[in-house]
Nucleic acid binder design. Structure first.
Lengths: 209, 209
DNA sequence: GTCTATAACCAGATAGAC
DNA sequence: GTCTATCTGGTTATAGAC
């Protein structure tokens, strides 16, 4: 049986202690290396058009070896989804869930933006494979793991909050996501400056006007 | 050989003259009925997770019959993509291409919003199947069919335009798309009112502030 | 214009050797 | 921890009858 039979929440590079496990080229454990390649291929070609054989080939071993680390292809996608979960601090989450004030939403989004930008590829993965990820969410995905997207979704569906505010929140989320996805187009702009531009957009939509 | 061997730009319900071709339940030609079902299933379950067998079953005939109307599964997706193309008037397109003024972009988007809202599902399809559609765009898709998305994309990539303006345009597009996708959440709001809220968002991002 | 039958293929997944 | 070999099932696509 594999060392981690059920899917575990992976938190990303920060968790990896250098020289922590066998691995190959780097000190990174194989499981992480698989996830890194998968993230790259899934974002580039799409989840469904990427085969396990392809992932394995890139790493220099065979398809079946991947099955030692993950129970299924879905399991890989799920693990990447959990990387996103891992980015969220609980304190921010509670803030969103409790308050119904656009100013608070804007603050949370603003504070979260740097982390989003630093882990941009993870968001692009989600943006480009919505269909596959939502299928995953419907079945499986047992524990009601709360993440940022879930928190905001529940706000959007809350009828006690004025429609105008909710619509503008929805737009602000879309605007930020769009900003992340097309960040490559603005590669010549320094990251800090770029993030500030996005922050301003969030502000204009949620508190300004 | 099929009546329309290569993919033709389908324009939607407006093109269908009542009693125009055999069809079945309605006066709609079979080709259109296939596209309607495909649109529904592709948006719901995703392009890759929908099989031709499933589409055929819904229509009451067999998988192979679908191949009479379309050369491949990709061809169906492409035809739906062309429905989107069909929504765009050339006059609006030129407007976007020529001007580099945020005010103009806002006007175009505003004028286009009603049509976008009326054909919402088409946009949701594109939003939820970006990966599949971009693969399609890379290969095939011969004639440089210009659509709204292409026009705006070329603006975003134009270095002659101030970065701030371009970033805000990118955000505005994302905001509108997000608004379209989550329109169901706000089903209780009258459409006109909802579209006005979105128009305001576009305005705040592109001309206000 | 639609259907039956079937070909050809490749994916995800398993068993068990090393 | 990785490999070879194999199973199983579903997918796109074709040929040809009605």
């Amino acid at each position: 049986m594999p060392p981690t039979p059920s899917t575990t929440g992976e938190v990303g590079p920060a968790t990896v202690v250098p020289g922590d496990a066998p691995g190959d080229g780097d000190g990174k454990p194989t499981r992480e290396r698989i996830l890194d390649i998968a993230l790259e291929l899934f974002t580039e070609q799409g989840y469904d058009k990427t085969s396990l054989r392809e992932i394995a080939e890139r790493l220099g071993f065979s398809k079946a070896a991947v099955y030692y680390h993950f129970a299924s292809k879905d399991d890989i996608l799920l693990a990447l989804h959990y990387r996103l979960h891992g980015l969220t601090e609980d304190s921010l989450l509670e803030l969103v869930g409790s308050a119904s004030d656009p100013q608070v939403w804007a603050d949370v989004l603003s504070r979260f933006l740097d982390k989003m930008m630093a882990n941009r590829q993870l968001f692009v993965l989600h943006e480009r494979n919505r269909a596959a990820l939502e299928t995953l969410h419907r079945e499986g995905h047992p524990e009601r793991h709360q993440d940022m997207a879930d928190a905001f979704r529940s706000v959007l569906a809350n009828p006690a909050i004025p429609v105008r505010d909710r619509v503008r929140l929805s737009c602000a989320l879309g605007a930020v996501m769009s900003g992340l996805v097309s960040a490559d187009t603005f590669a010549e702009v320094p990251t800090d400056e770029y993030v500030d531009l996005l922050r301003q957009v969030v502000d204009d939509l949620l508190v300004g006007a």
